[in-house]
C-alpha cells in the first residue's frame, strides 16, 4: 500500500460526510421526539443504536448531530483559512516593517489557548453556534497565516512572478492567479487537519454546554448526557463517540495522506 493514510482517510471521510449529508436530509425517526421506544432500549433492528433516557432514537440523534458539528467545524475552518491566508499573503507580499507587523499580529493569536479564546467569545457574544464558528476561525487563523506568509515570502521573488509583474499584472492578480496556486498544497493539508481539530473543539465546547443548545443534538453534549447513565445504557455513549472519532480520524488521515502526496521533498528523502 503506497499511501494507506490517503485511501483509508478518503474512505472514512466519504462514510462520515455521507452520513452527515443523509442526516441533514432524513433520519429514521424525529431526533427530538421522545418515547419513540421505551427509554434505554438496547440496540435492536428497529433502533440499531438503541434509545436514550427520553426514549429518543440514538441513531437519528447521531445522524442529526453530525451535519451540525461538521458545518460548524467547516465554516469556522474556512473562515480562519480564508482570513489567515489573506493576512499571511499580504504580510508576505508587502514585506518590510508592515509585513513584519502583520506577521506579529498573526503570531499574537497563537498565545491564546483555543478553548479560552472560545470562552472569551462566548462571554462577549453569548453561547451558540455563531460564537463557536468564530472561535474556531480565530484559533485556526494563525496556522494558515504563518503558512501563507512563508510561501508568499519564498515565491514572490521567483522568476515567474517577476515575469507576471513585467507583463503588467497587479498585486491582487499576482497573489491570486500566480502565487496562490503554488502555495495551495500545504494550505490544503493544513485545512484538513484543522478541520479535524475543529470537530474535536466543537465537541468539547458542546460538552461544556457552550456550543449547540438543547434540544438540538450535538455529539459533544450527547456524550456528556450519556456519561451519567453509562453503566445502564452504554450504547448512548458508544455510538456518538464512534461517529466523532471516525470523522476526526478520517480528516486527520486524509490530511496526512495529502501531505505525503504533495510534499515532493519528503518523497525524495524517504524513497517510496
Amino acid at each position: 500500500m503506497r499511501n494507506a493514510s490517503l485511501y483509508l482517510g478518503a474512505v472514512l471521510c466519504a462514510i462520515t460526510v455521507g452520513a452527515a449529508l443523509l442526516g441533514a436530509l432524513w433520519t429514521p425517526y424525529d431526533p427530538l421526539r421522545p418515547e419513540v421506544a421505551p427509554a434505554y432500549s438496547p440496540p435492536s433492528l428497529l433502533h440499531p443504536f438503541g434509545t436514550d433516557w427520553f426514549g429518543r432514537d440514538t441513531l437519528s440523534r447521531v445522524l442529526a448531530a453530525m451535519p451540525v458539528g461538521l458545518r460548524v467545524a467547516a465554516v469556522g475552518t474556512a473562515l480562519g483559512g480564508a482570513v489567515g491566508t489573506a493576512l499571511g499573503a499580504a504580510s508576505g507580499l508587502v514585506g518590510g516593517a508592515v509585513g513584519e507587523a502583520l506577521g506579529s499580529v498573526i503570531n499574537l493569536l497563537l498565545s491564546f489557548p483555543p478553548v479560552l479564546l472560545a470562552l472569551l467569545l462566548v462571554t462577549v457574544l453569548g453561547p451558540g453556534e455563531g460564537s463557536v464558528v468564530l472561535a474556531i476561525g480565530l484559533f485556526n487563523l494563525p496556522y494558515f497565516g504563518r503558512l501563507a506568509r512563508a510561501s508568499f515570502l519564498e515565491l514572490r521573488g521567483r522568476a515567474f512572478v517577476e515575469a507576471a509583474r513585467a507583463c503588467g499584472a497587479g498585486p491582487v492578480r499576482i497573489a491570486l492567479v500566480h502565487i496562490l496556486p503554488n502555495a495551495a498544497g500545504p494550505l490544503l493539508v493544513q485545512g484538513t487537519s484543522s478541520l479535524a481539530f475543529a470537530l474535536l473543539s466543537e465537541a468539547g465546547l458542546s460538552y461544556l454546554g457552550l456550543g449547540t443548545q438543547p434540544p438540538y443534538p450535538s455529539l459533544g453534549r450527547m456524550l456528556k448526557e450519556a456519561q451519567q447513565y453509562f453503566i445502564l445504557a452504554p450504547w448512548t455513549a458508544i455510538f456518538p463517540g464512534l461517529a466523532l472519532v471516525a470523522t476526526v480520524l478520517g480528516f486527520n488521515l486524509l490530511g496526512d495522506g495529502l501531505g505525503a502526496r504533495l510534499d515532493p521533498r519528503l518523497r525524495r528523502i524517504h524513497g517510496r
Binding site: 493514510s5 479535524a196 474535536l200 465537541a203 468539547g204 460538552y207 459533544g220 456524550l223 456528556k224 456519561q227 453509562f230 463517540g241 466523532l244 472519532v245 476526526v248 480520524l249 486527520n252 488521515l253 496526512d256
Partner: peptide
Amino acid sequence: AQVGLAVPEFWLGF
C-alpha cells in the same frame, strides 16, 4: 498515534 489524536480528551478521561 492517529487514534490517540482522534479520541476527544473528555471521553478518554471518562
